Amino acid sequence: MPEKKMTIAQVKEVLSQINSEKDPIFLELKKDSRKGVQTLLKKWEAKKEKALQLIEHRHQMLLHENQLKEEGYHFIAGIDEVGRGPLAGPVVAAAVILPPDMPALQIDDSKKISLKMRNELYEVIMEKAVVGIGVVDNTIIDEINIYQATRKAMKEAVEALDPAPDALLIDAMQIAMDVKQISLIKGDAQSYSIAAASIVAKVYRDRLMEKYAEKFPNYQFENNAGYGTKAHLEGLEDYGITPIHRRSFEPIKSKLKIK
């Protein structure tokens, strides 16, 4: 009597437990001509390939961190900011120390990642990593300029870390701290830690702006995060300047002069 074949549902369950294409059960399933089985095998192989790509991505993005570890540094923080360009709201910086066992994830420049993925990664990073956040509001930005405000936010983010880092990887900046620093141009595309920080800063600031949108509903902050979109500029024309607008930024600066 021929051996009874597994049902498609059983094949799906078995494949969820297999980690290698050299597994004897996997090799046996490759011989199964049923379309449903072959479809499941293709999905398994695609998932496996994606996992391998993420492992390689993590490896490449940890080159700077691993180099610092070889030099004797232990707590390496990646730092990035978001919110230099908007007309309203704060500039936000994040500092992230990743654990040695950080999973291979789609951690990359936050601008390259979908909203859904950013939010998912944010939760993982906040759960597994050591995270510090610095927020500098629009009044301070107007007082000391956006560049200095960005450096201030970054410093605050680093100072919020526990344990304190002994080396910093920063996206295209230096900050006033007596600690080893490496500035990387487009660092969020080169460093896993900086990319993680870019995701944290982006999601954190976007959520802040969504709260501001509830208080100031005529500018669509929930959609534009304070950037000068058409809807935002129309809101300025129709409803004027809010307490979170940056008065040193155009066109707000010119509007104040006219008054």
Results as ranks from 00 to 15, higher is better:
E210V: 15
A225N: 05
I182N: 10
K211L: 15
I182F: 12
G228V: 00
A172I: 02
V203G: 07
D206H: 11
Q181I: 13
D171E: 10
Y192K: 14
G228K: 02
D188T: 06
A172D: 10
I170S: 12
G235A: 07
A189K: 00
D188G: 03
N224Q: 02
A172H: 06
S193I: 02
I175K: 12
M177P: 00
I175R: 11
G187R: 06
G187D: 07
K215D: 06
P217I: 06
E234F: 00
F221S: 12
K180P: 12
M209C: 11
V179S: 11
M177H: 04
A195N: 05
Y219W: 07
A225D: 02
G235W: 00
Y227R: 06
H232F: 00
D206W: 10
G187Y: 06
F216N: 02
Q190S: 01
D238Y: 09
P217L: 10
G226T: 04
S183K: 04
R205P: 14
A225L: 03
I199D: 09
T229Y: 01
A189P: 00
V200L: 10
A196M: 06
D178K: 15
I170G: 09
G187P: 04
E214A: 13
I182Y: 14
H232Q: 02
K186N: 10
E237S: 12
A195L: 09
V179M: 14
D238E: 15
I175M: 13
